[in-house]
Amino acid sequence: MRALIAAAIGLAAALALVLTMTAVGAPPGETSPKPLLHSVPKHP
């Protein structure tokens, strides 16, 4: 029973965090117009 209560509390906390982040919204600013260029490392 304790595990069920702990899981419910954890789920409620995670949901509250997601809803808070959704309500706050994205931070102001713009993304970089330059693409992130990288190469895949070669394995010998």
Rank of each mutant, 00 (worst) to 15 (best):
H38Q: 11
H43G: 01
A6M: 01
V24W: 05
T20R: 09
I5G: 01
M1P: 05
I9Q: 07
T31N: 11
L4M: 13
P33K: 03
S32G: 00
G25L: 02
T22D: 11
G10M: 07
P44C: 06
M1D: 13
K34Q: 12
T31D: 14
P44W: 14
A6W: 00
A12N: 04
H38R: 13
L36S: 04
P44Y: 12
P28A: 10
H38F: 15
L19E: 11
V40N: 01
K34C: 01
R2Y: 06
G25C: 03
A7D: 04
P28K: 04
L37W: 09
E30C: 04
H38W: 15
I9A: 14
K42M: 04
V40R: 08
A16Y: 07
A14D: 05
A23D: 10
H43I: 08
A26D: 11
A26F: 13
A23L: 15
K34W: 12
I9E: 09
A3C: 04
H43P: 00
A26S: 12
A13D: 03
T20V: 12
H38G: 10
P27E: 02
G10P: 00
A13Q: 07
A3F: 06
H43E: 12
H43Q: 09
A7Y: 01
P35N: 06
V18K: 09
H38T: 14
M1S: 13
G25M: 03
L17I: 15
P33V: 05
A16L: 09
H43W: 08
T31G: 15
A3K: 09
V40M: 08
L11I: 07
M1V: 12
L15D: 09
A23Q: 12
A3T: 04
P27V: 03
M21A: 15
M1N: 09
L17G: 14
L15T: 13
L37F: 10
S32Q: 07
R2P: 02
P41M: 03
